[in-house]
Computed example of a mutant assay.
Amino acid sequence: MSNLTKKIIFLDRDGVINYDHGYVGEIEKFEFIDGVFEACNHFSKLGYEIIVITNQSGIGRGYYSEEDFINLTNWMKDEFKKNGINILKVYYCPHSPDKDCECRKPKIGMITQAINDFNIDLEKSWLIGDKISDIQTAVNANIKNTILIKEDKKIASFTANSLFHTINIIKKQGK
């Protein structure tokens, strides 16, 4: 494989990057989970780039607008930049669950779009989420390296209490 292929850490947002207070669509309600920046800096030092994939049914349900979400996302990315971290891209599904779209996790539309946009090596990439549907997305997309935050190890490769606690799981490997 080419050295130009990207190793990606796919991160869910709510429950992994920020506390999931339910339908977080405004900056005022967004609260970073402790250790997020340290973990992401660690991933960067290991040669990973970060992509966020997030279901945002609050848009489809009318709890907040797509513009609200984009403003919040831009603010979030700026906060990462202030901490020396570049978020390669944020993919989101704005649909409510009843729409049966291809982008809502556990379907793989957001992963497929990322693969179309970037030269990604899925063998060396990871997906970290806090719900079984996140891990099922990885399984459906053939991403073998998974970490489930705050749930039982059912189908994930590993579990951790928070993103910060994944530092000891994701190590520089020659695979």
Rank of each mutant, 00 (worst) to 15 (best):
H95Y: 14
I155V: 11
G62Y: 03
G58Q: 03
Y48G: 04
S157A: 11
I170F: 04
I155R: 08
I132H: 12
F158V: 13
V16A: 01
A138I: 03
Y23D: 10
E102A: 10
I135R: 05
T137A: 06
V139E: 04
M110T: 07
W75C: 01
N142E: 15
Q173G: 14
K172G: 13
G109V: 09
G15T: 14
D14F: 11
S133V: 15
E66Q: 15
L46A: 00
I128K: 06
L163A: 12
P106I: 14
N41Y: 04
F32K: 00
F158Q: 08
K99Y: 08
T73L: 06
I167V: 14
K105C: 04
E102Q: 08
H165I: 01
D14I: 12
I169K: 14
K89W: 04
G58H: 09
N55R: 05
I9P: 05
S44W: 03
G84C: 06
I53A: 11
K150M: 07
T54Q: 08
N55K: 04
I87D: 06
D100R: 09
I128L: 02
L88W: 13
K89V: 05
I169Y: 07
F118D: 01
R61G: 01
I111R: 02
S96G: 09
K131W: 03
K131F: 02
N55Y: 05
C103E: 01
G58L: 09
T112M: 08
P94S: 10
E49L: 13
I85R: 03
F164Y: 15
H165T: 09
Y48H: 09
D130F: 08
T112L: 11
G58M: 07
S2K: 01
G15Q: 07
I147G: 00
E31Y: 15
A160T: 06
I87A: 09
E67V: 15
M110D: 08
N55S: 03
I169N: 08
V16C: 05
Q56D: 01
G109C: 10
E28P: 04
L163D: 02
K7D: 05
K99E: 13
Y64M: 05
A141Q: 02
S65A: 10
G47C: 08
L4K: 13
R13Q: 04
I169P: 03
F158M: 10
I170R: 13
I167T: 15
F158P: 01
S157T: 14
F164V: 10
